[in-house]
Design a protein around this nucleic acid. Structure first.
Lengths: 122, 122
DNA sequence: CTGGATCCACTTTGATACTG
DNA sequence: CAGTATCAAAGTGGATCCAG
């Protein structure tokens, strides 16, 4: 019972973890539907490999829909599934909390807080 | 502007990412205050190293408070900070969504969905 | 155009032993 | 008791090339 309590959180994390998932989701949400190449253009730093794998995971979780047009050259469109929209409030909550937390970190540490510092000495 | 939109989510993720952070938080929340050794007992699989580093990160983000009793043998107590409590609604939302998502995955894939499978073939 | 496959660098986690 | 230090293993992301 106590253990299950975490399962929930980790399941949710699972979907957002991965260097590019939030960014990808953000763009798809913004544009309703995007082609593979359009996502590449919007996120220039991402490699095809990562874009593919992250999209596959989102698709597996039924968050993103992948529509393939059987034509040459290939055309594939990605969009948020109906079910995937149930994730939006959570994303929004995380987004708001995250931004206010950035503010909090700024108040605590000033300009030079270690955004990604793992080895913190006291 | 569009980029900032992600900053928020990634900041929030940052705090929960790490193999043990959700479990640790869960136990501290449940018990109000826990000693280092008590956390070890509650999460037997975790190593001291990981427990230490994850607690340090949570402390750096002002989510967890570390109270040291200057005595021998040492005694250290961990608890959620006042500010850290602002994270609880988010945790709760994630927890609920995550559990219902597990249900959804079960409906989609039956007993044998690949909880952590990264390489999905269609 | 939309990927898949391979190889490599970097990061995160784990095992174990030691310390104030 | 509450950690550190060190080394090894595993996981993750990136570069590059290939394919239908």
């Amino acid at each position: 019972m106590a253990d299950n309590c975490n399962g929930g959180i980790e399941t949710a994390l699972d979907i957002l973890i991965g260097k590019w998932k939030p960014v990808i989701l953000f763009h798809i949400i913004e544009n309703d539907v995007l082609r593979f190449s359009e996502l590449q253009r919007l996120i220039p730093e991402i490699t095809k490999k990562m874009l593919t794998s992250q999209l596959r995971e989102l698709e597996y979780h039924d968050i993103v829909h992948r529509k393939v047009y059987p034509q040459v050259p290939p055309k594939v469109e990605y969009s948020i599934t109906e079910y995937g929209k149930s994730l939006l409030p959570l994303l929004s909550t995380m987004h708001k909390w995250g931004l206010s937390h950035l503010q909090h970190l700024h108040e605590l540490y000033g300009e030079n807080y270690q955004y990604k510092e793992k080895n913190i000495r006291q």
